[in-house]
């Protein structure tokens, strides 16, 4: 049999070629997978009442602002503009939901407790956050 020294145990020129080929494959797949999608994933606001989904608003595709009125025990007026959404008015006591202001990132939500309404922006939570305290 062959002596191991020199043949199989020392790096050869072709090893380097192989390594370079794999790196090239990495670069190519990298470009294909990441290169084209410069825009962020499409933002959708999901409106639920009592845990049931009642509306989906594609925030990215809004040409002009729109308003959605949600009736429950109280009335919430949801205003959606390109890339962001808020609850602009409400007949609930306290109006905490109106104070929450605009949200624009996946994972964020607006809540009107008395009316059991939530507005959530869909998508994987940004920076891998599982929950928000506060």
């Amino acid at each position: 049999m062959k002596s191991p020294a020199g043949s199989a145990l020392r790096p050869t020129r072709w090893d380097v070629v192989l390594a370079a080929a794999i790196l090239l494959a990495a670069a190519v797949t990298g470009y294909l997978l990441y290169g084209n999608t410069g825009k962020s994933e499409s933002l959708t606001a999901v409106v639920t009442r009592n845990g049931e989904e009642i509306a989906r608003i594609p925030l990215d595709e809004l040409e002009e602002p729109m308003e959605l009125s949600v009736e429950g025990e109280y009335t919430n007026i949801i205003r959606a503009e390109r890339g962001r959404v808020c609850i602009i008015d409400s007949t609930c006591p306290g109006r905490d939901c109106v104070h929450q202001g605009w949200i624009s990132r996946p994972g964020q939500h607006l809540i009107c407790l008395p009316n059991h309404v939530t507005v959530t922006i869909e998508g994987s939570s940004s920076s891998g956050v599982d929950a928000v305290s506060g």
Binding site: A131, V132, G134
Partner: peptide
């Protein structure tokens, strides 16, 4: 571990 963000009191959309 679970990742729990702390909200920015001045800006509800930030941590």
């Amino acid at each position: 571990p679970w990742r729990v963000a702390v909200r920015d009191p001045r800006d509800g959309s930030a941590y």
